[in-house]
Design a binder for these strands. Structure first.
Lengths: 252, 252
DNA sequence: GGACGGGCTGAACGCGCGTTTAGTCTATTG
DNA sequence: CAATAGACTAAACGCGCGTTCAGCCCGTCC
């Protein structure tokens, strides 16, 4: 407990050998986690950083704490990068741009590994992408480029989760030869899905409005019970209740 | 090597104590893998099946071989269930139906775990869903319910990967309290995304056809080189070449 | 100059893993 | 009835893991 207090050593009053080794270990861990997932061993990370495994524990207390430190670091990067990222999060093109920049690639890899493992970083990463997309979508709607939605928040959330989920699944199903080369993976993803995506975005999928209208009618006048547990309070905005749609989805 | 020859004992000529124990182990393994992922230990599986860990190895040779046997079993189920499944794979409603049936739930869980791990079962599972969706989409287009696409194969592939990927990411980000209850997870997924999905499917997202037309023009008259490696031979049908779309995507 | 304390290491500990080994039990076979 | 073969187990092996321990090195403080 007392050893995990970085900087501010009290008696000595200043950083004795600056925090460089600790940082080097954390950087190596981020890189290794991004490359090999969170199953990577402390020994491997120590070897990457050129130190002994014991030192890793000495500085961070445990592997779990190291993981948390990496999460914090990447999270801080995500928040920081928000300031200088210029738009277009919808189609995953923001990711494309990021993956091309070698400096960002490992951090992106870390985020992807987190998405597969499903930790706090994953949720935060997704939430930030949703927030960004919300801004850009709002602008695009105001500019008349994008059609308005019955529930803007739900739409932007769905579109973001859809884009990220599709990317994730594509990467999992046929991983690129070099797992580090996320640029290649995202490029493949883009070339494969760009056409059907803009086609869907342009003309939709269904020929009639019936299914949508039926469901909207159903929402405004729910038939009876079927009350479900809502997962989170911070997501649904307009939909007062969205029970099992099976009853209205009488397609074909 | 010689011990890994199941059935057909030659001299004895018939199943001595029928294959029930072996099957029981395999069933326990499928269940445990579905519940806890493929990191589950042989000891746990053995305990679930009520046998010693050594017997698991005795019957299957290794954990990896057991994993393969489970894959085979689930794969055979997927192929078999194809015969009696009636449609609507697009929105994941097929999954919804399946998850409600308790008998299918563990096998669905196994498939989801495979999707996260990305093995052969995952690819097969996705491919079967794509094949099914292809049939139903073709019918729906013929019936005038669904708009035709420039590239039907690419569209159905994208839509399937998108639906599954979104589901997978949703499940990863906030996993249901009881990880076995896939019905609950899929229900949550449906209620959360049904509205934005049919809205997108009904009216699209963009107000103008410009992006799509630009890209189609670009496809028919590619500017220069930028030749990429195609991932698989059995997927792309109409798109002769789909290079980096960055040049045409000059939105905003 | 001696005490001190943090950075750092090599060696070891305990644990859970997949797997092996040696052997028991049981039921079939000649 | 003796031989045989396969189902099955208890115990142990070897390995890699996260972590601990004892101690070295070296710069700082009284």
């Amino acid at each position: 407990m007392s050893s995990t207090n970085p900087g501010a050593t009290g008696t000595t009053g200043r950083p004795p050998s600056d925090g460089s080794t600790r940082d080097r270990i954390r950087d190596a861990a981020v890189l290794r986690f991004a490359r090999s997932g969170f199953g990577a061993s402390v020994r491997t990370i120590a070897a990457d950083a050129g130190v002994s495994p014991a030192l890793v524990i000495h500085h961070f207390g445990s592997k779990e704490a190291l993981h948390r430190a990496c999460d914090d670091f990447v999270l801080r990067w995500i928040v920081g990068s928000k300031r200088q990222n210029m738009g277009r999060a919808t189609g995953g093109q923001l990711l494309q741009v990021m993956a091309e920049v070698d400096e960002y690639a490992p951090l992106l890899g870390y985020a992807v590994q987190s998405l597969q493992a499903g930790g706090e970083v994953a949720r935060a990463f997704v939430q930030h992408m949703i927030d960004d997309a919300q801004v850009y979508t709002r602008e695009a709607v105001a500019d008349g480029i994008v059609k308005p939605s019955v529930d803007e928040d739900a739409r932007v959330r769905y579109l973001t989760l859809s884009a990220l989920g599709t990317l994730l699944l594509t990467l999992t199903l046929d991983p690129p030869e070099d797992p580090e080369d996320f640029a290649a993976g995202i490029r493949t993803f883009t070339t494969e899905h760009y056409l059907p995506m803009i086609e869907l975005f342009t003309q939709g999928f269904l020929t009639s409005r019936r299914m949508l209208d039926d469901y909207l009618l159903y929402l405004s006048d729910p038939p009876a019970g079927t009350r479900d547990a809502t997962t989170d309070g911070d997501v649904a905005a307009d939909t007062t209740a969205a029970p099992d749609p099976e009853t209205t989805s009488e397609e074909r």
